[in-house]
Design a protein around this nucleic acid. Structure first.
Lengths: 187, 187
DNA sequence: AAACGGCGGAACGCAACCGTTACGTCGTAG
DNA sequence: CTACGACGTAACGGTTGCGTTCCGCCGTTT
């Protein structure tokens, strides 16, 4: 029986190492070193760097995020923005996600794993959010959830993970107003 | 005198290699191999992998892009979207940019180089675009160019470089309408 | 008490790169 | 015609990582 505490130590080490040096330069030896573990313990669990990283990352990525339902679209939206922006501010997310995204452009297996994890949540959240708003009459019936998701997550991701600019206090409010107006116009 | 054709061959090799394996795994030997050149030719020009990549990338990144002025905001916007989306569809851009972005989270020098190249263009385009529209009376005076840039580039980058979904015909139109509505609401 | 199995540690042969050096070739400037 | 300098090739010693193997330790199970 594989020891659970060792597995946990390895998982943590992989995530830390991933944030620090990225997938490309992540080495099994460094993971073992950081976890305070023999290489054998790792190879007893996974046979590859790729397999190891994918198993660990997708396990984390598939944790369900509770969908907001505050009673109004503006409330839902602001809460969602808050959740996403908080998540993206964390070092783990803001370093690991872009890194794996870049890697996904090269490795189909990474791409598939990531896309599944990401798109599943994405469309789920988008459709629920937009659906609720339409039911409430806050958005026109023809609103495109696809465009909506892009208009919501895109700027946030851009600003936090790409441009790496801070989000000031009034930004989220302006942004909420902008997105609401934008979505009404897509119908 | 260093031979120009050799320099060109190296530059091309670096870009190709960068797209193929990413910065983290890019090796001088591989660049030399691909360029059909000795390692000595490379070390005669740059002393580092970092220095080499930075010099080459920033040279390319700083090429000026003509700013659109079609006479109307909708026209400007649609042209800009077309330019950016075409650029991001190219393998070079869609692989190298996210890769360097991810790397920038770790390496301050890469971050600084990239940010300068990116933000310079970004704010220039944004301010010109928004400024023109305000002058024409198409957008209210208080329109925030900062938010505007995020609302324009964010979704595009997200969709093309992150989610890697195609952009259908009617998407750009819907998107143009959405952005226009969004910006009117940020004042 | 004995057997089992996961563990860390150490070492294996192999491969890739690093950054540097020495050498011989070849085109061009003087 | 000569001298220079950029070039490719090859090799250097050193480092890092791969994936594997063997060992001895130790807690659990039986």
């Amino acid at each position: 029986m594989l020891r659970g505490d060792i597995t946990v130590a390895i998982r943590n080490a992989v995530m830390t190492e991933l944030a620090e040096v990225g997938y490309g330069r992540l080495s099994i030896e460094a993971v073992a070193r950081r976890a305070g573990v023999g290489k054998t313990a790792i190879y007893r669990r996974w046979s590859n760097k790729l397999e190891m990283v994918m198993e660990i990352v997708s396990e984390i990525a598939e944790r369900k995020v509770p969908l907001p339902d505050t009673g109004s679209f503006a409330g839902d939206l602001q809460l969602l923005l808050l959740i996403v922006s908080t998540a993206l501010r964390h070092r783990m997310a803001s370093q690991i996600i872009p890194d794996l995204m870049a890697e996904a452009a090269r490795n189909p297996q990474i791409a598939e794993t990531l896309q599944r994890a990401l798109r599943t949540h994405q469309t789920a959240v988008g459709e629920k959010l937009i659906g609720q708003a339409i039911t409430r009459g806050e958005l026109p019936r023809g609103t495109d959830p696809d465009v909506a998701v892009d208009m919501i997550l895109g700027p946030l991701y851009w600003r936090l993970a790409v441009a790496r600019q801070p989000i000031e206090e009034d930004y989220l409010e302006k942004f909420t107003a902008a997105v609401t107006a934008a979505l009404r116009a897509t119908a």
